[in-house]
Design a protein around this nucleic acid. Structure first.
Length: 342
DNA sequence: AACCAGGAAACCG
DNA sequence: CGGTTTCATGGT
């Protein structure tokens, strides 16, 4: 483990683009499970029943190295970040400072966790922020694709930001079915505020997603009060029950690395269809070829990139995506990024 | 004010 | 089966 100025440094791929990742993490104000401030991201985890509060620093907040990567705007908080590094850690050696600028690092705010917890925290962050997926093959495929080429040039270095918790991923995805994103964020926030945990610490609110056992035993009326539809409420509870009882788990879904099995298993659950299964496969199971074909955001992005008069039909989407295999999840995620306010 | 939103199930011929 | 309707609320 490498420590610099009280921060645990995580080896970060050279092409990783902090600005694009930060822009994604910060895309909706009402996100409640993490906070973005310049090149810092604040996130609380419950590990072994204890809460760990982390301040992540994403390098200098912008592009990497000499700036040949990316560089088309989205350089979130570069000056601010540099100022913060100078301000808070004035005694850094040049090589130490460079280490922080080139990598993602963690500062543990509520006491340094033990060895085991630290390992879990690191594993979580590496998975969440996708630090271990080399994208050279994806870049190569995208470069030869008329639709994806310009998109990947613009967002090169972006990763698929994950949702490592299966309960959280499934809940979020079910919430997001057939409603606009800002309403989805509102519903998630209500759910977390009503049944999750909120901690006030160092002038910040730290929210933790509710436990499966609690959601499983909820009176369904409680969810209707939050303006969940009957179907969403029922599906959410079913998922929570399956997870709380151990009938459904990430480990089970990942067994044998058989994504086809995982998709079938998920779709077998009432309220989960192909879109939800593939979305969860992309964000939680880390299937880099997961493909939420019916996603209207994807359709909108394709329509805009190709200047189509209307949204593309499903067969057309499917055909366009043929050439993106086995990286359709990344292709989708990059296309979503084109929908962010520029 | 209509239309639609990062869908899925039930229904129907 | 494959297409159509219903669910359900809020953003734009």
């Amino acid at each position: 483990m490498k420590w610099v100025a009280g921060r645990l440094v995580l080896d970060t791929p050279a092409d990783y683009h902090f600005g694009h990742v930060l822009a994604y993490l910060n895309r909706y104000e009402s996100e409640c499970l993490h906070q973005v401030d310049g090149c810092f991201v604040y996130k609380a985890l419950r590990l072994d029943g204890l809460v760990v509060m982390m301040e992540l620093q994403l390098g200098d907040g912008g592009a990497r190295g000499d700036g040949t990567v990316g560089g088309e705007g989205n350089e979130v908080g570069v000056a601010e970040a540099a100022g913060a590094v100078n301000g808070e850690q004035p005694r850094l050696l040049p090589e130490e400072r460079e280490l922080l600028e080139r990598n993602i690092s963690i500062r543990f705010l509520n006491g340094e966790p033990g060895e085991r917890m630290m390992r879990q925290a690191v594993a979580y962050v590496r998975e969440w922020l996708d630090l271990d997926t080399p994208l050279e093959e994806f870049y190569r495929i995208a470069a030869g694709d008329h639709l994806l080429g310009p998109v990947v040039r613009q967002f090169k270095g972006l990763r698929v930001i994950g949702v490592p918790s299966l309960l959280e991923a499934l809940s979020w995805t079910v919430i997001g079915q057939q409603i606009n994103l800002s309403f989805a964020y509102t519903l998630k926030r209500r759910l977390v505020e009503a049944f999750g945990t909120r901690i006030d610490f160092e002038g910040r609110q730290w929210m933790l997603f509710p436990d499966a056992a609690l959601l499983a035993e909820l009176d369904p009326e409680r969810l209707l009060e939050l303006k969940f539809s009957r179907t969403k409420a029922a599906t959410l509870q079913l998922i929570a029950q399956l997870i709380a009882s151990g009938e459904l788990s990430k480990e089970q879904l990942l067994q044998d690395n058989d994504f086809a099995y995982a998709e079938q298993r998920l779709i077998a659950i009432r309220g989960i269809g192909p879109w939800t299964a593939n979305y969860v496969a992309m964000r939680c199971l880390r299937n880099r070829d997961a493909f939420p074909l019916a996603d209207v955001g994807l359709h909108h992005a394709i329509r805009r990139r190709l200047n189509l008069p209307e949204k593309p039909a499903l067969p057309q989407v499917e055909q366009l995506a043929e050439g993106w295999k086995p990286w359709r999840a990344y292709a989708t995620f990059y296309l979503w990024s084109t929908l962010l306010p520029q």
